[in-house]
Design a protein around this nucleic acid. Structure first.
Lengths: 200, 200, 200, 200
DNA sequence: TATGAATGAGCGTTCATTCAT
DNA sequence: TATGAATGAACGCTCATTCAT
């Protein structure tokens, strides 16, 4: 029987998270300072670190929670069958992850857990993402010469590639979703005709 | 006629870069300190910041130069025709970019220029990477339903995906190059048989 | 026969001074940077120091010239005979010297020459101030138990004291000129009645 | 009930101040470096800035404390009744304030508070100076046509004037105290005879 | 658990002044 | 004279993290 977490503990943690969320709503993730969080929560700085290993752990939790909320919508919606549908359903996540460079960076860093015990909120969402994607791959009419699992990993790769290029002014004239769509079209569907474009 | 850069300026910059390279060879990029660079270069700190906007600008230059040297080898070598050859030739870059987490992060951050004027050394290498890749795509026997340019972008996506997963303990048992190879096989070549794997 | 100062020299100096004056008109003395002056004048930094021993030498010249222009007006006007007239005529100088704390500090520092050879523009103006004051002391109906020279030095002391207190928020509610007037009244005129104020 | 300052805080601040005082005793105020203070105090640099807004704040405190110690002696001693006694008692302060040009400048800058909240140690000492002076003015046999408060302000003005001229080589042959004495004689006492000196 | 003072390593900056060309 | 790159010595600051109470 595990010792039940004390009420006070829960309350303090909730206060910290609530404070952080208010601050983020106002100033964004990038500007969040531990200093401000504890002040707003009305607790001491040390208390923060009694609840979260470090600042990133809070970020992991906050961003993870946000992504989870988005994925909940993905789950509730009927599985997309076509690529435009896939892109459309992904759009809110795309928007969130590109809202701040910092958010993108954190997700990049935490999307793979560094240690087995370290699988945190963000890493969990990648798992969910992957699972959902696998499911979608199976119900859609996509190329069959590759396993759904691999297809899913590829979708992930292109998903990040599209965002990475988004942060690059040189290409920002092309819409994020358009780029993703052309990537996925090429990745998920194999046409028989042969084009002949050339590189610049 | 632009104002010619003075000899002295060139010399000082060279001294700074040389000093930094010696230090990096000894301790790695992560450990590089501006303080140490100027001391080793025998130059005042103010001078450093007259030559580089900040420490990151030096890093951009140093890492960019290193990547350029690797790409020079890519250019000198005959274009790889098969996927294993592509992976093999990419291997040194993979090794360099994963040698230090810090290096990977800097490259991620600088690979896309935020402003047109901001196109620094690293961003330039991405251009070269892309061009080379396009060339390779044309000479190899790859799927023809997609433009070489798009194929190249996909290779990039998988290239980064492989590295990102490498920094993630959960998957690090699979060799970086093996993972890249299976990605590229699926991306560049289309088989006719249909598999039937399932997701976990 | 002294070598005549070359035309070019004179022109360069004039350019520097003109540039400085434009900048000061825009941003004030405090914000003046040698960097900006030479840039605006279109000369190299080293040239600046070929014309002025240091930045302060330029300031000395500029501020001295400004004070001289004010003293020219003092000279042109009829000598004030009463204390209110003295205060009134002094008012423009008071305004200038308290316009920026930096100006006050420079004048404080240069009002006494450090070396005989060093008597610069500001120190010269103190001489003029003193002379004028002595003249005024002689024509006015002031206390006769003290030499005009000493009276003049006292006026100076109170002149600075009034300004010093002006820079102090605690007292800034009392107008600068009012304070100076009451100082000078006490210093220059001796009444026979005895007051009985007490300190706070 | 204000939050009580922790013991540790007090101790750290004391360490910082003690370290600074040792260094000043050795090298003077001018040569004091923040770096050295924290090192000698065995404290982190960040800690320094947690205790003092900046280096000047420490100087304010240190110099203010020194002046306070001198004023303590003024308070303990019997009030001077004659001008030579006044000058004699003031002498140690005169010596301290002219010991380093830097000290004089700091005092000038901080003697007037810019904001009400800005009343620092040095500004406080000016208040004490003034109060003491008022007391002395009342017990001595000085001119009665002017309030002690105004007399006190005049003494201040001459006190600073004497020091300002001291930093000026042209006049440094006349002893500081002698000059002050002649100023105060003229300011505090009114003779009936009329001299007839002329200005130079 | 909670507290909050202390840590600490290094970055970026400042800008008048010098000096080799 | 003119040039302008180089100097240089601190300062101020950052801010997540630790640790003694």
């Amino acid at each position: 029987m595990t010792k039940p977490v004390q009420q006070r503990t829960l309350k303090t943690r909730a206060k910290l998270i609530a404070a952080a969320e208010v601050l983020i709503a106002k100033e964004g993730y990038t500007a969040l300072r531990v200093e401000d969080v504890v002040q707003k929560a009305g607790v001491a700085k040390g208390t923060f670190f009694a609840h979260f290993r470090d600042k990133d752990a809070l970020m992991d939790r906050l961003i993870g929670a946000h992504i989870d909320r988005i994925l909940d919508d993905w789950e509730k919606a009927p599985a997309p069958k076509t690529i435009p549908e896939v892109v459309a359903i992904m759009s809110p996540l795309l928007t969130f992850l590109t809202s701040e460079r910092y958010v993108f960076d954190v997700v990049m860093r935490y999307s793979g857990a560094t240690l087995i015990e370290d699988i945190g909120p963000i890493a969990m969402t990648i798992g969910r993402f992957d699972e959902l994607m696998c499911g979608w791959m199976e119900v859609g009419e996509y190329r069959a010469d590759v396993s759904p699992q691999l297809l899913s990993e590829g979708v992930q790769a292109f998903f990040f590639q599209a965002m990475a290029l988004h942060f690059c002014a040189l290409h920002s004239d092309i819409a994020l979703t358009d780029r993703l769509q052309s990537y996925l079209s090429a990745w998920l569907i194999v046409k028989t005709e042969s084009p002949s474009a050339s590189c610049t």
